[in-house]
Nucleic acid binder design. Sequence first.
DNA 1: CCTTTATGTTGACGATGTCAACATGTTGGT
DNA 2: ACCAACATGTTGACATCGTCAACATAAAGG
Lengths: 184, 184
Amino acid sequence: MNDTKQKLIHITRQMIDQHGIDGISMRELGKEMNLSRSAMYRHFKNKEDLLAAVVAENFEMLTSNIQEITENINDSRKLIDAILYAYFDFGIKNQEHYHLMFRKQWDKELYPNLHYSAFGIFKLVEKCLEKAGNLRKNPTQSTAIMYAFIHGLVDLNLSQHSETEKGLDNPVYLIESFLDLIFI
Amino acid sequence: MNDTKQKLIHITRQMIDQHGIDGISMRELGKEMNLSRSAMYRHFKNKEDLLAAVVAENFEMLTSNIQEITENINDSRKLIDAILYAYFDFGIKNQEHYHLMFRKQWDKELYPNLHYSAFGIFKLVEKCLEKAGNLRKNPTQSTAIMYAFIHGLVDLNLSQHSETEKGLDNPVYLIESFLDLIFI
DNA sequence: CCTTTATGTTGACGATGTCAACATGTTGGT
DNA sequence: ACCAACATGTTGACATCGTCAACATAAAGG
């Protein structure tokens, strides 16, 4: 029943955390589930399909993280600050999952929901910036720049291209600096 | 002799371009080279080692691209503009290679040269910003923010998380906006 | 009661990275 | 000229992997 499917997703999540994206195999997953080699194919079309389900969950988590912040902070600069940090934090704490979310090129036809989710996050942030009156660029542009910046920051930290000498390893400080540029 | 090694790198580069990172196999490479299954292991310890050699070349290419720009443009804003665009352009035109350069976590012990190269690019840009007197943040911070931004921009475009609605699909325009924020 | 559907298992296939054993050619020293 | 070391290549073999087909069984629903 649907129970196994959910458990399958859950165990996969754990395995990704423990062994990384490249460290998981369908067969190992089977063992972990006390199932045979290929029982999973009753619940998911293939490996990619299973991973997509995990990624979908991740996007939901990230979205609700940000949503929650949105509801609890009023000052627009503080709000954006909190969002950016939450985003960064999510990326660092779920690095393998973050890779899976953004590094794999998810087919838009096959997995439109993943793109909706990503777009939802973007829109959420944009809405926040629309309320802020003290931007140096219009909300859409500001959001786009911010999105590129924060994603880049996370990604460089995850790929260890963020040596101290580059000043990229102190995100709190750097996010602050960045906001100084975005806001008037 | 060293000739084969170089050719090996070259063919690998082509195969990556044509079939993507996940589309290359040592065995296929063997065929393409008119060699046996595992002749490559005389020249490279393993697959990762071979890929690292390709990545090293890529870093050199990117570095010399930027170096060249540095030498030919004086106005600091125009210079940075050109560098950012060249960087973006490189990423888009060599997307599979760009992934390989930044998405794979290259072990610092095993491949220190890759990290030196990446650091070199960073320093190159930082030097340019040091000469510019009209920054809103100090050169190191500006460089760090810029690095995150441009890497994020490239990466989002490559992973197709850059729909028109997000305003991320017009890099020339967005880079311009971004520079408006960086410079006074 | 019979038929569909859901869920599981095992056997099999082809692809892949890699190593060990073996062959051959090249080079440099005596 | 001879031999040893080394460079370079080949084939056989192995474990691992994703996936499918064939088969089993149990539940559900008419």
